[in-house]
Design a protein around this nucleic acid. Sequence first.
DNA 1: ACACAGATACTCT
DNA 2: GAGTATCTGTGTC
Length: 199
Amino acid sequence: MTPLPPSFYQREDVVRIARDLLGKLLITNIEGKITSGYITETEAYRGPEDKASHAYQMRRTPRNESMYAQGGVSYVFVCYGMHQMFNIVTNVREVPHAVLVRAIEPIKGLEVMITRRGCADLRQLTNGPGKLTQALGITRMYDGLSLASENLSVLESGRIIDPDQVIAGPRVGIDYAEEDRFLPWRFRLTKTAKAEIIH
DNA sequence: ACACAGATACTCT
DNA sequence: GAGTATCTGTGTC
């Protein structure tokens, strides 16, 4: 399995990319421990014109600087002082689009992930954005890294996702985004699709 | 964001 | 009816 090419990330349509990321394999090799899972839920954030985005109106701070990098690098930020959020930067340099990865189906390194999470319930292991980063060992330290690097990468899984296996809906936790909070930019695999993908 | 609780709704047996 | 899933509301760092 090979890392997704730059051309995948650098397309213009971040919403399309968010949908296309479903079924790809997110894998980390951190502290010598390999963990991975299939991406099952994402949200698109369309930078300058999206009120839910950290980069709304080209807002630029040390925290969100990575959003302005070229597509194919990570953007990791800390939420509520405790949760790490993992995003995939898209589009070209200086266009701050990104996709938040909200959930994965855990595959490799289950024991490691269970230890990191302090939770043995497989259902709850990586079913939220703060949970998957904890399970995979992703922290702010890994902000701004290429997604084809040793520690952190997104691989082509070969899984084909049919349109009828994808549920689109409004994004979560962005009530402050006024009219933009209704945009159907959240994508997740159906229960049956998740069950199939791990086989 | 997460954890938990309560309400509602859908599915499977 | 039991199990699962979604949503809402409260509380917490």
